[in-house]
Design a protein around this nucleic acid. Sequence first.
RNA 1: GGAGGCAUAGUCUAAUGGUAGGACGGCAGAUUGACAUUCUGCAAGCCGGAGUUCGAUUCUCCGUGCCUCCACCA
Length: 791
Amino acid sequence: MYDKSIEEKWMRKWEKEKAYSFNETDKTKPVYVIDTPPPYTNGVLHMGHVSDYSFIDFIARYKRMKGFNVLYPQGWDTMGFHTEITVEKKYGKNLDEKEFLEKCEALTTDNLVKMREQMKLLGFSVDFSREYITMSREYKAKVQLSLLLMYEKGLLYIGDHAVYWCPYCKTAIAREQIEDKEEKTKLNYVRFDMEGGSAEQLTIATTRPELLHACVAVAVNPTDERYAKYIGKQVSIPLFGRKVKIIGDEDVDVSFGTGAEMVCTFGDKKDLVIYHRHKLDEIKAIDEGGHLLNAGKYTGLSIQDARSAIISDLEKEGRITKKEEILHTIKIHEDCKQPIELLHSTEWFSKTTDFVNEIKEQANKIKWIPEITKRYLMDWANYIDWDWVISRDRRFDTPLPFWICKSCGYIVGADKKSLPVNPRVDAPPVDKCPKCGGELAGEKRTCDVWIDSSITPLVIAGWPDNKELFSRAFPSDIRINATEIIRSWDFYTIYRVWALTGNIPWKNIFVHGLILGPDGRKMSKSIGNVVSPEELIKTYSADSVRMWAALSGTMQGDKALIFNDVKFAHSFINKLFNSLEFARPALSGYVPSSSDMANTDIFDKYMLSRLNSLIKQVSSAYEDLRFYDAANAIINFYWHVFCDYYLENIKYVVYGDDKARKKGVQYTLHAVVDAVLRMLAPIIPFSTAELYQSFAGKDVHAQQFPVADEHAIDKDIEEKGEYLNNIISMIRKEKTKNKLALNFELTKIIINVPEKYYTLLAENKHKLELIAKVKEIEVKVGKEEGVSIAQ
RNA sequence: GGAGGCAUAGUCUAAUGGUAGGACGGCAGAUUGACAUUCUGCAAGCCGGAGUUCGAUUCUCCGUGCCUCCACCA
């Protein structure tokens, strides 16, 4: 019976012995480096993390057993918006900066400690002595160094650029922080007068009448017969009276609204494209807090108020010819769920658009598993519209290490020797602007959190100081993460590492789907379908949860968490423990020796052949990171081939007096248990550690992974063994049919077999009698294959 | 709107141009010298249509449904 308390015991033992420390001085073993995605510390580990990190740990443990010196550190992504919001919600928005940052750090540390404990509970063989924390001074210094180097390479710049802007949070946001939201809105048909007071009118349809003041053109599709003739003419904007041109653009959808649309400089992304394409004028429409600019009497109104005021005024003038309710999708900020605007803003940028080809080239050098996932990155890269906005107007983040000249705009980077710096309070490295002698002002903004987390493959390899380790540990061998972060984390990591080193960040990347709630929907607190790892560990065990992770399919798609799968894993582990209760006494005093192979019979040879086939199969599954296949193959073999048949088939030997036969059986038993425990060790480390200790007196995790003995694999023996088991199954079936207990001793049965199996059956008749508890078996050659009771 | 993926018992999943394998759940039975967290057995399935073929669940096309990414959303 499986006792969960062993998990605590082994966990503390591994912790105390620092069993999984990377041995930096050992240069004999090849190094295997795992770049784990550091979890964000605004919360604790959920089942998605558990699945992700379990996969990583399977690899780490497997590679150690294959003789690698495994570098498996764990990082913590600590800073940024989410933590700030949590702290603001908890303590209000009125904390002073020092107090606010202290609360952020305290919250982070608290979560970090909880997560670290969760990882230990789950048996993750992380080298915690090589932990990195993005809010630490040391890590911030590295982030700032990376920014200085990128600046020197001309990859960073301050620009006046259209950015997605959240008026609610008053911050620029990146494309991946945007969500779509469907909502009902009114499509307003607004009548414009044509130039020269002609009687001709043009009606446009708009969902955003509040941007009327920023209208810089009216666009129609040049193929649209209704309007093509108007291209080049002018119309007058209602309420404002300003005249704008009618332009032709093929992106205008003739079937939407009236087929004529107004173009505002910052209405949406398509407006922006047309604005650039036709070199239209710029009118700043909205300020950073979401109030109208340059809008005459409407200036200063919020977007909502302006919308009602303008609609009402348009109606008074009889300009609105129709209002239509439509369902459309607006872009909202994923954090605050408020609508996003496009604004021109002065921000820091990292040049990505110019390097799309380089990034794709790097991505092509990485092995993507499964290969299809590379496509997600490529699709993303192909749609880069503008550079990566890396500045954030927030507080709990790495400060941008720059000072800017107030008079000429010259940028002064921090002194690399004095990192980390905080230009909001620290003095610049030089007194005056080196270019014009002007006064320098510290950059007040911080950087995007992805800036922090996109250099992990460098940091874990000792960058920039430990050059010796770096030469061995970079690039990382593998990165593992979910599909959802390919376009952010993976993309930025590939870009940043390329920019800083010209190299790829990892040789391999394994991408998997999400773990959904039991109802098949994404786990979410508001739906209430979140399952906590603790709950499952408490009900079952850490090993069951890990085994569940291995059994959760190929993980190419998303996967619902099914409790039965954890239960099943738990049952198997229990079976493993119970079977050892049989095997251990049966092997008592046995010293394995290859000479005992001489005493193996067909049942043993069948087992050994199957075992070695299994080792081959499982090894290749592990190599290809197909943990589902590995776990599944071991479970089926152990439970249904080894326990259900072999153990039953040899009981008469174990409890009998034939010493020679017993040696053959013990040899086989030992070989199977030994190899199976070692093969399961990466997946269920606690159970296998406990069992291997009692079985072999050794640490299973210090053993080599089993290697198949090709000579033991004999397809002819496998077929014969299969046939004998099939006969046993038929005898069991006969007993069941007659409602007899399986250990009920039958007097006589007749077995009809095809001629080719007659010799096999005749030779093993006596063994079958003992295994199946029958006094006498008569074997006959017969057309009707089968077993019948002769009473 | 574009691109891609997927469709197998109640649920999850595998393989296959010729009888579709397994798990969970269900049902029936057994209590066996490690194990009731067990053992034995049973029932239950290829989304719809057309084509290619002696034969299609598998290949092709169409439809339908689901998923992902991208675009549009004045």
